[in-house]
């Protein structure tokens, strides 16, 4: 009989408790964003689609050698032993592991998975897998719309960060004030 009553009470109590938790979360702000319109900021060093700085590449094949899945195909001709006339630099994103090894072995630091400004292209949605064999030479980075979105997100973030920094500074100032008051108090105490 005791267990019976306890079961009834327990189930009601824990249900109400759970409902309190969900209610609490009902009033919290959402954590998701509307993806194509809003972008989540990418960290620096994000691993997206590669970009190649063809001017400084010395055609040493290290990236192609280290690649665990052999997805880099490169062909160029040396002109007058100095310049490279590029024919092919393809990365097959059907295979690519996004492991960052090709970037690390590069002796000239000319291949990147993010653009130098920290933005990166990452969407690989396609209905035709053959389109995933991308020509990195032709790939010009973000589209205009993407760039605008990135700038917008970055500005927003900067604004938020500034606000946060401001709030933190204020807090700190307040804390410092308290501290100095404390010190004053202590000084008074010691004076006594």
């Amino acid at each position: 009989m005791f267990t019976y009553m306890r079961n009834v009470v327990d189930s009601l109590r824990t249900t109400v408790k759970g409902m309190q938790v969900t209610w609490k979360n009902l009033r919290r702000p959402e954590t998701t964003v509307e993806y194509p319109e809003q972008l989540v900021p990418l960290p620096e060093g994000y691993r997206g689609i590669h970009t190649l700085d063809t001017d400084i590449c010395i055609y040493c094949f290290q990236c192609a050698k280290i690649c665990p899945v052999d997805c880099i195909e490169m062909r160029a001709e040396r002109v007058e032993k100095k310049f490279l006339s590029w024919e092919v630099f393809n990365i097959d994103y059907n295979k690519c592991l996004f492991c960052d090894l090709c970037i690390e072995v590069c002796p000239k630091d000319c291949i990147h998975m993010d653009k130098r400004d920290g933005s990166a292209k990452f969407a690989l949605i396609t209905d035709d897998r053959s389109t995933l064999n991308l020509d990195i030479l032709e790939y010009k980075g973000l589209s205009e719309a993407d760039k605008v979105a990135v700038v917008k997100v970055r500005e927003e973030n900067a604004k938020k960060a500034a606000e946060k920094a401001k709030a933190a500074a204020e807090k700190k100032a307040a804390a410092d004030k308290d501290e100095s008051e404390d010190k004053k108090d202590k000084a008074d105490d010691s004076g006594k």
Partner: peptide, 12 residues
């Protein structure tokens, strides 16, 4: 459900 789960739910 979206509100309870900190999501946006259908928005478009």
């Amino acid at each position: 459900s979206a509100d309870f789960q900190s999501r946006l739910g259908p928005m478009y």
